[in-house]
């Protein structure tokens, strides 16, 4: 009992500090990193609903991310429709796309499903390149100015600082966590897990497999498209490789697998590791840190070697991390933590 209260208190504390953070942290760089973190959480959590709970490991989530991003940006760019209306259009389109994809891919299982999901996302990417009149092709869509957000006559925000994006990102991350929590604790979640564990058994229990798979897909696709729309308006530029590329799909899946799929906090944990890690590796902060701490001299051969190569090698280290996690923590970090916890409990008994 006290544990639940403690947990709730801790949760509220984190939430409260996230809500007031922009009041105290003015550094746009820090806010930018938080925004990337929120984006990553919502991407991972959206995938988690379909991949983690329903066990349908899509490697084509870039399709929904890209559709959301493109729909919002295209409407804003060509029809001057503000993104907060464009998002709804994005949702409608993404539901149609998801159901079309679902009707193809859900006939297949296991590796075939994975390959089909890749193929569909690639078809969308190539179409975005080739349908130049609709999407502006490989040149992408650039939208610099966001309209001012007003309710009635009151200006809520003009999007000139990072703060509104911070709150949108936070809202999105909380929304996806909330939806996941709801899925986990509703009947839907039980059906999903039944399908994940054994499709045939689930079917014989009278669960409409394809109906529930499609429900899972639609929820997941809508949330991913919201993340895509948010990416579009935040970065202000979309083109086929950055929002529809295969590496976007892999990145989304990676967040869950590193953190732990099918758990509420897995994608959050995954994002908390991947986002800062890739930033630190990319910008050579690790070498700087080692130099500052005094472990490595700045002008020694080791120091120079690290400075020269570590930033080039960050994708390599990323690869090594993936391999290590899969080999030694196949259930992700959450799985690893849980295993440790049960072991401690057993020892205590």
């Amino acid at each position: 009992m006290t544990k639940t209260i403690l947990k709730a208190a801790f949760g509220l504390l984190v939430l409260a500090s996230l809500l007031i953070l922009p009041k105290y942290v003015e550094s746009p760089y820090a806010l930018h990193m938080m925004i990337l973190l929120f984006l990553s959480v919502s991407q991972g959590q959206s995938w988690n609903i379909l991949g983690g709970y329903a066990g349908q490991h899509s490697v084509g989530h870039a399709a929904y991310f890209g559709v959301g991003a493109y729909a919002t940006m295209m409407l804003m760019h060509t029809k001057q429709i503000a993104p907060w209306y464009g998002v709804w259009a994005g949702i409608v389109i993404v539901v149609v796309v998801a159901l079309a994809i679902g009707s193809i891919c859900f006939r297949l299982r296991g590796p075939y499903f994975v390959l089909a999901s890749i193929a569909v996302a690639e078809i969308l990417r190539l179409s975005a390149i080739n349908l130049t009149t609709l999407t502006n092709g490989a040149e992408g869509i650039l939208a610099t100015e966001l309209p001012v957000f007003k309710i009635g006559e009151t200006v809520i925000t003009d999007f000139l600082t990072k703060v509104p994006f911070y709150y949108i990102g936070l809202f999105l991350a909380l929304l996806t966590i909330g939806v996941t929590y709801w899925v986990q604790h509703s009947k839907l979640g039980y059906y999903f897990q039944a399908i994940r564990e054994d499709q045939d058994a689930a079917h014989s229990l009278g669960i409409h497999i394809s109906v529930y798979k499609n429900i899972g897909l639609v929820i997941s696709a809508i949330l991913t498209s919201l993340a895509g729309s948010f990416y579009g308006i935040y970065v202000g530029f979309v083109d086929p490789p950055t929002v529809l590329g295969l590496d976007v799909s892999v990145q989304i899946m990676l967040i869950c697998i590193i953190g732990g799929m099918g758990t509420l906090w897995g994608p959050v944990l995954g994002s908390l590791i991947l986002v800062p890690l890739s930033e630190a590796l990319r910008s050579n902060m690790i070498t700087e840190g080692l130099v500052k701490v005094g472990l490595v001299g700045a002008d020694t051969r080791v120091g120079l070697f690290l400075k020269e190569n570590l930033s080039h090698a960050h994708v390599l280290l990323y690869g090594v991390l993936v391999v290590l996690v899969i080999l030694f923590m196949p259930d992700g970090l959450m799985g690893f933590v849980k295993k440790l916890a049960t072991r401690r409990k057993q020892e205590a008994v």
Binding site: H57, G110, P111, V114, V315, G319, V320, L321, V322, P330
Partner: peptide, 22 residues
């Protein structure tokens, strides 16, 4: 599970291409 196999081979691929790049 399938997605772990996929990610492992993706990871190995990243290691190969980036080692060659270095």
């Amino acid at each position: 599970v399938a997605q772990n196999q996929i990610l492992l081979t993706i990871g190995l691929g990243l290691i190969m291409s980036n080692t060659v790049m270095l």
